[in-house]
Design a protein around this nucleic acid. Sequence first.
DNA 1: ATAATTTGATTATACGTTAAATCAAAAAAG
DNA 2: CTTTTTTGATTTAACGTATAATCAAATTAT
Lengths: 348, 348
Amino acid sequence: MIKLKEIAVLAGVSQPVVSAVLNNTGGGIRVSEEKRRKIRVLADELGYVPNYAAQKLRGRQTPTIGIISDGFQNPMQTVLVSQLMRKFYKKGYFVLLSSNIDDENKQAQGHVAIRELLSRGLDGVILIGSYTQNMKKLLNLPCVILRNPHPEQHFDFNIDSETGTFLAVKHLFEHEHKKIIVLDSGIKYSGARKAFQEADLPMDYLKSFVTSGREEDKDVKDELLRLIHDENFTALVSSNDFIAGRIMSFLQSNGLRIPEDFALIGYNGSAFGRFTFPPLTTVVQPLKLMAEKAFELLLQRMGKNINGIEHCKAEMITPYLSYGGSCGCKAQVVNELINRPETFTLEK
Amino acid sequence: MIKLKEIAVLAGVSQPVVSAVLNNTGGGIRVSEEKRRKIRVLADELGYVPNYAAQKLRGRQTPTIGIISDGFQNPMQTVLVSQLMRKFYKKGYFVLLSSNIDDENKQAQGHVAIRELLSRGLDGVILIGSYTQNMKKLLNLPCVILRNPHPEQHFDFNIDSETGTFLAVKHLFEHEHKKIIVLDSGIKYSGARKAFQEADLPMDYLKSFVTSGREEDKDVKDELLRLIHDENFTALVSSNDFIAGRIMSFLQSNGLRIPEDFALIGYNGSAFGRFTFPPLTTVVQPLKLMAEKAFELLLQRMGKNINGIEHCKAEMITPYLSYGGSCGCKAQVVNELINRPETFTLEK
DNA sequence: ATAATTTGATTATACGTTAAATCAAAAAAG
DNA sequence: CTTTTTTGATTTAACGTATAATCAAATTAT
């Protein structure tokens, strides 16, 4: 790698002159126009790239944000990451991404990703997904934590899945559905329970049902048909849009009309829901909003130099419904973002 | 930020001793067990994090790979990125990601992402997607370029989309289909043409057809039904799996049976194809293979210190078919990876 | 008892950069 | 013509770390 000194020798000047020229920074140094040109040409020809380590050591800051996610395949996370990158770029920050994949297996080795990233000189960090406790002491700089699934751990923003199904079920009530299946037995199911309690409906009108959505899940399909035909369940809230789509196809191929005979609501707001027929009504996770909030909060914390972890906000973000035709509404679909159909970007 | 010298003062030793202890590195320095313990405890308590810039400047190398993609929302790219990260992590490399989003708008500003990333001390780079010419001279270190859409630019590996549709159409021939619709007018359509030429079938048996897959695309739906009912087209190769799924739903709700009345083949091998009914036969893009090849090639080039761009391989990678039931095959679906249903990981 | 070795450290130095302090020569001001 | 200012630089120092060179004291060998 070529360095300033080498350029300086070739240009017949001292090394600080080269530095001053290439950085357009005074530093009190004045250089003649002729030499400036010469230096710039040389730097270009030799392909000079500044040594970051040296610059950084000397105190020069390209303000940099680290985003550490526990994976880049989950579309929710990639949406968050993309949104955040865009925002920080616009604000003049450089963004470094890394992942703590596999760290679960290597607890002993420590959190390579975060350690490495930190040591590369960050001004702030956004942590997405799970992280383990000993990241804590490493994080002695401003950070914001998103969507941490472990309840005993900290987070700043998390999406309120419970309210998601709560809203979905309440909406189905508006379409006169009383017997409803929910594809979850955990937090999303509990949101449905709340809606039933609030509406004073008997709990056996609410069916929890778990399926992988796999092709060979034959029992599940039979059971689904039984619930519909024998027990008169008339609607279903899925745990994600893909499975909702699959169930839609399955029921349609069994002669049921959606939504006339059976109503469906998906979950996640994935763009895929705009490609079923009828389009899915779905619970949208406001990832853009979440990114926006995380962005603002991190800027704030960096300004005040607050080391995030001790001051977590633990704010829940409420999902909302996007109406396709599958729930029984007259479909009023806004097709904002369909140009990248396999992307996960339905949110308004 | 705490530094070695401060620990040294507190421990009552000189700074190099602290360095030696915390790095477990001889350097010729011997330290008593008692002081070692003391130093380690102090470092832990004070939350010492080494200054990367200084370490790097001093010559310490955590071997690092940069991956620069033109976006992290496209599932194809995130699969590539995830695969590559995993491989490099296993090999002991640290991976930094960045994106050249928005750089198109800021030509003048130069390629911030790549510049910043480079200056952070990389040993090799993987470029995914498009890049512009002046990245070239920045890239004076080993690199591998994937999937470059611009034909006038270099690449090492690219997926042969033409052969994808070629294979799909040939497969439909095996199921006795003769009149086939292809949802593309570009390179994928050209693959279909080749298959028709090879089979000596008239070109008007092949219909090119472009749709956004949008809900409101009413003309397209009418035209599709017309082609099927009036012109006896019996099969379709889609440009992606979502649209294939949407068409499947649409046709089913119009009383057509898949695959008995009409056969469908998707494109991309997205996991979503396992959630339609019947599951989609789809053209799988061998992203894992691509990642594997890129990984190997970069290691090779780093070993030999070859600066990629001048030595691009321009190797095409051939897609393959994964058989669901939608083409007419007895569905023999392997559900390897369905536990993350909205992920893009069908590949075997 | 003296020389040689081992132990446990210290001091000096270099990595590439940038900013501050300094300086010589030329130009402008008195 | 001398003094001051301006121009165009050079030299020095510092960022935090890690290694090499050095060194004093303690231990072992002769």
